[in-house]
Amino acid sequence: MAAQDGRCGLLAPLPPLPHIDLMLKFMPILLAIAYALAMYRFSVWRTQRELDARSTDLADPMLKVMTDRLARALDLPRIKVHIYEIDPVNGLAAPDGRIFITRGFYRKFQNGEVTADEMATVIAHELGHVALGHTRRRMIDFSGQNALRTALAMVLSRFLPGIGVWIANGLTTLLAARLSRSDEYEADEYAAALLTKAGIGTAPQKSLFNKLEALTQARSGAAPAWLMSHPKTTERIAAIEKLEARWR
């Protein structure tokens, strides 16, 4: 065999294939997409398993009166609520549409710190998250944000070693906070309309916001509103009052 490229018996190295180069360039994005899909499925499974293991049905006569009023306003036979056995004061909606009140929140009601009308506003708010598709989208957003964080960290670390990961974390945190605040405003608006239709009104909704402010002030401190997952209490109340003015 004739020598080629000045080297006896050796062929010149083949040039890299264009499609291989293209795959290598987009490998971080492909890996991020695969990671997002895996995280989404795992997050849904883990959330449902946790809620199943640590929840019971809410059986309270006073609160059933309130949920029945909400159900009639929505033309539903009933609204089932569950107690999630954790201490922090919170309400949540699961990806499968179930509504939960934490044991800590229910304890506030039992102690007289929160009224039945105010508890109804929490349930209406979580119903809003379900009706508006926030619960499933939040799982997708959470997975997508993790994937975006991973992809950004991989790309930025090539150009900014040492701080690329920090920048990626900061950008995705800001994005998550903004999406979450938008969802909260929408769920507040849904709850205000539902509470008005049910004859409960928005006064308990606003009074509960002020109570929650007192309960969570120590935790949130002076964090800027754009970094918080929930809007400021004054802004949420102002948004509801704008709705009331528009409805009048």
Rank of each mutant, 00 (worst) to 15 (best):
V81E: 08
G170K: 10
P95I: 09
E186W: 03
A147M: 04
A3R: 08
L152C: 02
L127K: 05
M139E: 14
R158F: 12
H230Q: 06
T234W: 03
L227W: 08
Q4P: 01
D75R: 15
L127N: 04
P161H: 07
R78E: 14
G133H: 05
M228P: 02
V130D: 05
T115P: 00
E189W: 08
A147I: 04
D141W: 10
M66T: 02
I101W: 11
N90C: 09
A222F: 13
I167L: 14
Y84C: 05
P15W: 08
N169C: 06
M27T: 13
L208P: 04
I33Q: 06
F159A: 09
Y40D: 04
P161N: 08
L243P: 00
I163T: 07
N90T: 06
L148H: 05
I123F: 00
M1C: 07
R103T: 10
G97Q: 06
M66P: 00
I83M: 10
A151K: 03
V122G: 04
D183G: 02
I20T: 07
K64P: 02
L174Q: 13
R98I: 05
G221Q: 15
L152A: 13
A32L: 03
V165W: 08
R138I: 04
F100K: 02
M27Q: 13
A198T: 04
D117G: 00
A176G: 10
G164Q: 06
T135H: 02
